[in-house]
Simulated assay, not measured.
Amino acid sequence: SPFPNHAHPTADEAVEIHDILTKAHQPVSRRPPDHMSNSAQNCGNVPNVIEAIIGTILSQNTSNAVCAKAKSNLDKTFGRNNFEAIAAAPKQKVIDAIRSGGLANKKARMIQGLLQAVKEKHGSYSLQHLARKPESTSSAPALGDDEIMDELLSYDGVGPKTASCVLLFCIGRDSFPVDTHVLRLSHLLGWIPPEANRVTAQAHLDIRVPAELKYGLHMLMFQHGRECKGCKQAG
């Protein structure tokens, strides 16, 4: 942790807040990746790892509705998961396809750079080896969480939150993404020191929050942070 002397949240504190938020909202059950869903709208909750990354990139600094439209336009322009066509296209064509999502120039550069880097490293437009399950009968062993995070973070445009979302929602591992809502609530709860930002907060909370609570607690804190006017004002 970047804050080794900050002993919060304890496991009991995490359980307590999980239970309080569950009563305030509703129980959260883990949803398996859905190949029919829009990866920009659901934090990358799709089976294809590259699609999950692209969707999460498109969701950066914008609303769900806007980024979902950008992803739909990208699919309509090139075909869903036609990564070769996206990588080979003139940059302006990608920009035009995702323009509705905001920051189109920057995001087009990141998406094409991601695809080109994956092809150069692995020889194909696939990162499905990252999604190999520990119980898989494949001769190739599943990678550990840290190994997956290291590869995801090696690509331009993939920061800790994006990588954590892909790890949690697409690959099905236990990770704790920190967005603005989770950050605000964590400050209010005293789970992180005042100087913590999203990156350092995520590094700290991913260690402190028990693995079995990470999915549900993230979802509940995200929902509560978005809906609770009192918490917004206090933050």
Rank of each mutant, 00 (worst) to 15 (best):
D174G: 06
G172F: 08
K161Q: 05
N197C: 10
T180S: 15
C228L: 01
R198N: 07
V182S: 08
G172W: 02
M219I: 15
L217K: 10
T162D: 02
R173Y: 00
H218C: 02
P177Y: 03
H181K: 09
F169H: 01
L217Q: 08
V199L: 12
G190A: 05
V178C: 07
N197A: 10
G216F: 02
D206Q: 14
P210Y: 15
S175K: 00
S186F: 01
F222G: 00
V182E: 02
F222H: 08
C165R: 00
L213T: 10
L213C: 09
L183A: 09
Q202W: 01
C228S: 11
E195S: 15
K161W: 11
K214R: 13
G172T: 04
I207E: 14
L183Q: 07
L167Q: 06
S164A: 11
D179P: 13
D174I: 01
V209F: 04
H181S: 12
L217M: 10
P160N: 14
L205T: 09
S186I: 05
E195K: 15
A211C: 12
T180C: 11
V199H: 11
L168T: 03
D206N: 15
R184T: 04
D179M: 08
V182P: 07
E227H: 08
L220K: 07
H181D: 05
H181C: 06
D179R: 08
G172R: 02
P193K: 12
L185N: 11
H224V: 00
P194N: 15
V166N: 00
Q223T: 15
L220H: 10
C165N: 09
C165Y: 03
Y215T: 06
T200D: 07
A211P: 02
P193V: 06
R208M: 14
T162W: 06
S164F: 00
A201L: 10
V199S: 10
M219D: 03
P194A: 15
G159R: 13
L189V: 01
R226W: 00
S175P: 00
G216C: 09
V166D: 00
